[in-house]
Design a protein around this nucleic acid. Structure first.
Lengths: 223, 223
DNA sequence: ATAATAATAGGAGATATCTCATATTGAGGT
DNA sequence: ACCTCAATATGAGATATCTCCTATTATTAT
């Protein structure tokens, strides 16, 4: 992890810095720094205290919950403008999560010890935080209730459409399996099935969507 | 649904009224009323606009999410001091949920139209709302990730211990099945299995826990 | 009180999904 | 460039869980 002075960062990324100034009360910024994490680096570990509230400025990361039985579930992908440590800030978190950078991640890091009080006394920040948490709650609920009410091929179709890029589905299968909550083996079975049914085509190790309509039908219906 | 004047209610339930005054900014209370819902009555319907922010003062209710494929999932049980309509208040909700009273429910009802602005400008209320949402997010995540990482008998053991009363498990099987996310049929299989393994005993139509330790072991481990 | 509806209960068979084993290929570190 | 570890791929067999059916009790509503 590499630390950068916020001032130095601000000079090179004016637009992002403006966003930051609108999101956080000005009292906390003097203490904030920029942290850069490299791919696969842990931003937060489930068994260590968290010292900062992070705000993701660039890059992608993923949150895992670690269970006592050793299994872990990928519960969310993080992107620009997501918080890390929001639940620790408001002190409701009991079990921390693992947060791992997927590619290089640039984060604003606000020290909790010195800034908590400022943050929790800022009306606008609290309002935004509520909305952020509410939105997260809804998305997570949708994700998980879908697991319960749709069978896997429907959920997979949905996920592919959601994360597809230029018609290509190129997520790591290991990660996909953890996120959609099935075994790696079964994911491959279903991907093959999609292939045989003429929904996807394999190009190198990526899959290309060749029948988007059918995929869309599958994603929202039974079938 | 029966409406009661807040003043009248306050006279009979002083303690609860004190709680209310601490939870909500005083500007909104003059417009608030008390609503009583009877057992199985809908407090909110997924296809109708919500006009009030409700705060549950007494009784139990349950939230369902309704999916396009017709299935619905019980996502949360509500009890005293839970909000209903919190996500609509902050306007992040897209798909409403069904909320159904389990027994008689008494709610404080605050009209959204006239009170939204007051609520969202009150620092203390926003702080409490954030904590409430954060806590809800954590609990819901735990519930659902457990579905993914533990097999059903573990989850059922956990649920029984969580909701047991004086050693009796007496929830409706239909509701339990919807909440823990398995078919009614499979729930019965597993309950019978617990019976055969000497964990539960059937008394009338309730189950009585006769080996709590073993149930606890089952609830947190593989096995 | 009686009909109607919801909850409990269990049988039989189908299948979605898992576990374990094994081989091949790709990427990161020194 | 070489080694190691992670990711991809697939087979075979086991099982957790589902769907559909049919009775028998409770509850609720008229």
């Amino acid at each position: 992890m590499e630390k950068i002075n916020l001032k130095d960062y601000a000079e090179n990324f004016e637009d992002t810095y403006n966003d930051i100034q609108e999101t956080f009360p000005k009292e906390v910024l003097p203490q904030a720094i920029i942290c850069k994490f490299s791919s696969n680096e842990y931003i937060v570990r489930f068994d260590e205290d968290i010292q900062y509230l992070f705000f993701l400025l660039d890059g992608r990361a993923k949150i895992y919950i670690v269970h006592e039985n050793g299994k872990r579930a990928l519960i969310q992908f993080l992107k620009k403008n997501d918080f890390i440590g929001d639940l620790s800030l408001i002190e409701v978190e009991k079990n921390l999560k693992d947060v791992v950078a997927i590619n290089e991640c640039t984060c604003l890091a606000i020290p909790l010890a010195s800034s908590r009080e400022h943050l929790l006394n800022d009306k606008l920040f609290l309002y935004n935080l509520s909305r952020y948490l509410g939105d997260k709650l809804l998305k997570r609920t949708d994700h998980y209730t879908a697991m319960q009410d749709y069978e896997f091929k429907n959920r997979l179709a949905r996920y592919i459409l959601q994360i597809e890029n230029d018609g290509f589905f190129q997520e790591k299968h290991t990660e996909t399996a953890e996120y959609v909550g099935v075994s790696y083996r079964h994911l491959l079975y279903t991907l093959n099935q999609f292939h045989e049914e003429g929904l996807l085509e394999k190009r190198g190790r990526k899959y290309f969507i060749i029948n988007k309509e059918k995929l869309e039908r599958l994603s929202s219906k039974r079938d």
